[in-house]
Nucleic acid binder design. Structure first.
Length: 466
RNA sequence: GGCGACGUGGCCAAGUGGCUAAGGCAAGGGUCUGCAAAACCCUGAUCAUGGGUUCAAAUCCCAUCGUCGCCUCCA
C-alpha cells in the first residue's frame, strides 16, 4: 500500500515519495507571537502532529521544524502600545505556546527556530538574492523582484497580470512592480534592528522561513505545511525566494489545513472572533479538540461550536469505553465470539492504514475504530475476560495513540482508595439486597460527584473514573 | 473584479464513476435493570437546484442559488 498526499502545488493527490528513503523533512509555519494563541493555531499544530505521528507509524524518521516569528510589525506595534520590550513580549507568548503544545500532547518539533536567532543566515540569503539580480535595494529596504521569477504564482494559481489588475494595495512608487515584496525593511528610530549591508533594519516576513528551512532542513525538503491562509502570499513568496536562491525545486509536498470556523466565519486575530487556547482548556480536555480535528478532513473548514464539542466528547467517551475491563463475573466468551474479535483486530488494522494512506483520512480511520469498539463491546457483553480482551485492547490503544489520543485515564487514586471504593460497593450491595434504595443511591450519587462511576450488572458492580 | 474550496439524514462528517451512501452525536422503539448509567439489538438520507455526458454519477461537465477562504497581517 502506498501513502497518497494532496499537494497544493498541483491540486491533486500524489504518491508520497521522499527525497531520502525512510526520512521525511517537514517544515510547518508556526505563529507570529504578538498575542495569545487561539484554537485555530492549535488546530494547525494538531493536524501536523497527526501527520507526523502517522508518518512515524509508517516507519519514517521525521525531522520536524516549526518556527516562531518573533519580530514583525505587529509585535513592535503592540509592544509599543503596552510600553514593553518587543522581545520580552514575544518571549512570553512563545513560552505560553510551548506549554499549550504540551497540553495538547503535540510531539515537540526537532527544532523550533526563531527569526531573531537567524539574522546572519537571513542576511546572507538576501545578499545572495541581490547578487543574482532577484532583489534590489531602495532607501535601506530590499525588495524581491517578482518579474524575474518566471514561475511566480505557481502555488496559488495566480498570474502577475491578474493581480496587478485587481491590486488594492497602496502602490509604493519606489517598487519596480507593485507585487514586489520586502526582504528587508529599514528600521525607524526606536525599533528593533540589526546591522546589514543595507543599513540597520529587520527581515521581511517571508525570508525568515526560507532562511530557516535552508539552515535546518537544507535546500530541498519533503513537506512544507501551514494553514491555507498562508498559501498566498507567504508560501508563494517563500518558493520564489528559495528557488531563486538555490536554483532547485523547494518543497515536494505543500500541505495546507483548512480554517477553523466560528459561527461560519474564519477565526482570526484581526476579526476578533476568537477563542484562545487558554479559554478552551479551561472548559475542555485537550483530547476533545484533537477529536474534533480527527472527525473531519484536515483540508476542510472545521466547524466549531460548544454543541459540536459536546458531540465529539461523547464520541471520545465511546472510544474510551472500548478499554473497559471485563464485566463482573465474566466466564469467557464463545469460540465464535473470540473468532469475531480476532477478525476485528485484523480488519481495524488494515482499515486504519488504508484510510490514513489516503491523504490522512482521519475521519475514515475513526469510523473503523468505532466499528472495532463495537466488536470489543459485543465480546465483553458476551463474557469475554480481560485475558481474552487483551490484544484487542492493545490494538485499540496502539491505533488511537497514532492519532495522538489517550484512552486510558491517568490513575488519580491509589491502592488504598481502590480498597475504600470496593468497600463502599460491598456495603451498597448489602443495602440493595435489602432494597434500601435511598442509601444505595446516595452512595452511587456521591461517588459520581467525585468522578467515580458505578455500573451495575446482573453479576455485580464495577466502577471506573469518569 | 480575479483565483480557489465547499454544499451528503436533526447536528458533525466519510465516501469523488458501479455491491444494500461509513462512522459519531442526538432522537424513537426494544433487551438488561429497583432506578440510573453503560452496553447490545432495531429504526431514518438518493447526496443544494436544473440540465448534460455515460450501460452506470453523490462522485465527471455546464448553469443557477448559497456558504467560505485568499487577493492586505493571519494557522
Amino acid at each position: 500500500m502506498t501513502l497518497k498526499v494532496y499537494n497544493t502545488l498541483g491540486r491533486k493527490k500524489e504518491e508520497f515519495k521522499t527525497l531520502h528513503s525512510g526520512k521525511v523533512s517537514m517544515y510547518v509555519c508556526g505563529p507570529t507571537v504578538y498575542s495569545k494563541a487561539h484554537i485555530g493555531h492549535a488546530m494547525s499544530a494538531l493536524v501536523f502532529d497527526i501527520i507526523r505521528r502517522y508518518l512515524e507509524y509508517r516507519g519514517y524518521e521525521v525531522r520536524h521544524v516549526m518556527n516562531f516569528t518573533d519580530v514583525d510589525d505587529k509585535i513592535i506595534l503592540r509592544a509599543k502600545k503596552m510600553g514593553v520590550d518587543p522581545f520580552a513580549l514575544g518571549e512570553g507568548y512563545i513560552h505560553e505556546f510551548e506549554q499549550h503544545l504540551k497540553d495538547f500532547k503535540i510531539l515537540p518539533a526537532t527544532v523550533n527556530p526563531r527569526a531573531t536567532h537567524e539574522m546572519p543566515e537571513i542576511i546572507e540569503m538576501i545578499q545572495g538574492l541581490v547578487d543574482k539580480g532577484y532583489a534590489y535595494q531602495v532607501d535601506g529596504d530590499v525588495y524581491f523582484r517578482v518579474e524575474k521569477d518566471a514561475h511566480y504564482g505557481k502555488l496559488s494559481g495566480r498570474k502577475l497580470d491578474d493581480m496587478q489588475a485587481g491590486a488594492r494595495v497602496d502602490v509604493d512608487e519606489r517598487k519596480e512592480n507593485p507585487m514586489d515584496f520586502a526582504l528587508w525593511k529599514a528600521a525607524k528610530p526606536g525599533e528593533p534592528a540589526w546591522e546589514s549591508p543595507w543599513g540597520s533594519g529587520r527581515p521581511g516576513w517571508h525570508i525568515e522561513c526560507s532562511a530557516m528551512n535552508l539552515a535546518y532542513l537544507g535546500e530541498q525538503i519533503d513537506i512544507h505545511g501551514g494553514g491555507n491562509d498562508l498559501i498566498f502570499p507567504h508560501h508563494e513568496n517563500e518558493i520564489a525566494q528559495t528557488e531563486s536562491f538555490t536554483g532547485k525545486p523547494f518543497a515536494r509536498y505543500w500541505i495546507h489545513n483548512g480554517m477553523l470556523q466560528l459561527m461560519g466565519e474564519k477565526m482570526s486575530k484581526s476579526i476578533g472572533n476568537l477563542v484562545t487556547i487558554e479559554e478552551f482548556l479551561s472548559l475542555h480536555s485537550p483530547d476533545v479538540l484533537r477529536m474534533l480535528v480527527l472527525n473531519s478532513g484536515y483540508r476542510n473548514p472545521l466547524s466549531y461550536s460548544e454543541s459540536i464539542l459536546d458531540q465529539v466528547e461523547s464520541g471520545l467517551e465511546r472510544l474510551r469505553g472500548g478499554m473497559k475491563c471485563q464485566l463482573p463475573g465474566a466466564k469467557g466468551a464463545s469460540e465464535q465470539c473470540l473468532k469475531d474479535l480476532a477478525a476485528g483486530i485484523e480488519r481495524v488494522k488494515t482499515g486504519f492504514v488504508e484510510a490514513m494512506d489516503d491523504d490522512f483520512n482521519t475521519a475514515g480511520a475513526l469510523g473503523g475504530l468505532f466499528d472495532f469498539v463495537k466488536v470489543i463491546n459485543q465480546a465483553r457483553a458476551e463474557g469475554a475476560t480481560d485475558a481474552e480482551l487483551k490484544s484487542a485492547r492493545a490494538t485499540l490503544c496502539e491505533l488511537t495513540s497514532v492519532l495522538g489520543l489517550t484512552l486510558e485515564k491517568e490513575k488519580t487514586g491509589s491502592a488504598q482508595l481502590d480498597g475504600v471504593v470496593d468497600l463502599l460497593i460491598e456495603i451498597r450491595r448489602d443495602l440493595r439486597a435489602n432494597k434500601l434504595w435511598v442509601l444505595s443511591d446516595k452512595i452511587r450519587d456521591r461517588l459520581a460527584a467525585m468522578g467515580i462511576l458505578l455500573e451495575d450488572s446482573k453479576e455485580g458492580t464495577s466502577w471506573r473514573w469518569q
